[in-house]
Amino acid sequence: MPKLCVDENKCTDCRICQLVCSARYNGIYSPKLARISKKCGIMPDTTSTDVCQNCSDAPCVAVCPAEALIQPNGEGMVTLDESLCTGCAICVDECPYDAIWFNEETDLAYKCDLCGGSPECEKRCPTEAIYVCGEEAV
């Protein structure tokens, strides 16, 4: 599956990925609105990342009552059609990777869609820790 992979050993926890993501999609710098989530303990070798893994037969697609989450033939990228999303947030609870979030202002779910194939975060990660991986990678 094409997805964002993160080499945590290279990640310096600068959060630039989250900044460029929220800048692009929300027009504001807000890590909580980013489609990628970073966590880090006190020591820098404890970074971890939550981002959509584009699971096969994705559970979020299966539970979406509005059919707003789309994955043709149960393979490849899962996309969210915001015009269909009703904001029920069932997908948020269902995601095994904690990689779908809910925007209280818009009442809509949000998740990574790899910026359509050329992610902003990958382009701007200063240590090249983020990259698109998977057999169908662009």
Binding site: T12, D13, C14, R15, I16, L19, P44, D45, P126, T127
Partner: peptide, 17 residues
Amino acid sequence: FVKSASCFSCPIGCAKL
């Protein structure tokens, strides 16, 4: 040396574990 770390929004990563 173990790993580099950054402050928020910094591409330099001068901090060293």
